[in-house]
Design a protein around this nucleic acid. Sequence first.
DNA 1: CGAACAATTGATCCTCATCAAACCTTGTGG
DNA 2: CCACAAGGTTTGATGAGGATCAATTGTTCG
Lengths: 231, 231
Amino acid sequence: MPIDPLKLRQVSVFEQATDEDLKLIAQHSIERSIEEGEFFFFQGDSADYGYVLISGRAKLTQMNATGQQVNLRTIHEWEMFGALGAVRENAMYPASAQALEHSTALAIKSDYFHDFVQTRPYISFGLMKLMTGYIQEMQERYRELATEKVERRLARTLLRLTAQMGVKHADGGIELAFSRQELAEMSGTTLFSASRVLSEWEKRGLLESGRERILIRNPHGLVQIAEESGE
Amino acid sequence: MPIDPLKLRQVSVFEQATDEDLKLIAQHSIERSIEEGEFFFFQGDSADYGYVLISGRAKLTQMNATGQQVNLRTIHEWEMFGALGAVRENAMYPASAQALEHSTALAIKSDYFHDFVQTRPYISFGLMKLMTGYIQEMQERYRELATEKVERRLARTLLRLTAQMGVKHADGGIELAFSRQELAEMSGTTLFSASRVLSEWEKRGLLESGRERILIRNPHGLVQIAEESGE
DNA sequence: CGAACAATTGATCCTCATCAAACCTTGTGG
DNA sequence: CCACAAGGTTTGATGAGGATCAATTGTTCG
């Protein structure tokens, strides 16, 4: 069942698009559903499609020569990703996109999207806003990684996640569904260090945690950790 | 003495611009010359201008709460920087731009540039290419920082710099003019570690070094270090 | 020559990654 | 409904990589 084109208005890139535009995009794209763990594309693939995530969650990861993975960002519903093919000719994806759960995305041919954007400056600006946002985020994360300790980075990761997708729990806490492994990858550390830090925080009453689940009790305490001077 | 507008064609963003476009840009911008160590703008300033570096060199740096600096990238002649003001309203610069030597830049009012770009898709695409390039570079450097050792990161930094701005020396070596401190900031390490690694390499005959000067004797050896498996 | 600043080098310490082993949680099939 | 397997989590022991600090040695330039 094809999606309602007007729903695409939720995608930040298409904020200023006309109804007509959205219909065109919907017509010229195909839906791809994949299971948890499968890939929309791999690092190094020819960037022939741009994607809009319709449902589920995905992560962008990059591997180095020896196979170690780094998590670059998590993609949520109605986010656009892998769009660089529309900008550069013969580009390759610089990262892989893997589904964290059963996910569906709209795939738009890069050639078509290129021409589409070219005649619609408001879409260009949408794309550029997305890109400048990426750049800022990556710059900040780079600085964090270079100058800050694991504890601080983890605190920030949790805060970022609560802001993006935290679910208010009945009794006031905020719940997140991530494994220690995932949190570690997002913070640039290891499963073990992440686990240790979370245990410590649990002792201090900042949060409760379980299997693939974190319940944040005291976000303000996390902010303090994220912000406190190198002391 | 105002510059020849047509020289702006060298700026990647203006690759596809018409002569008329370049003249307009030149007319609507002002030249700013600053001395070594001075700033074009500071992190947190309102992003009222986009810049094109005409001569000299500058670096983009970001500071954390405790004042530690990270070097995000070096700007060379005919590169555009600080352009995000044209894309986002009321944006603030996410980093500071400091001259590494006496430098001159063309400053273009963000408002004007915004309108200028809006009616010229080929300029939008120039900007987007620049941005996707930034994104890719930052993603790679982030991965490097997360997974690779100091020695490897430093080797890569040197190779990047030789490619971008290495000067062939009379007797075959390639010369770079950077202090240990600068190399350290670019590689995400400390002055001391950088110094140690360079000394080691000098012993091995890969390069010679002096005060704010590196003479690379064996680039291939550096490539090997940058590439060799985590062994 | 002397001041200012870049670079080196050694000693020390701390943060984290790594590895190993055990433990817990969840879901499945007998 | 229990037992077991699979996979997530915890915790301890250990060590390596680098950051930090201090002291000294170059180098450059007025």
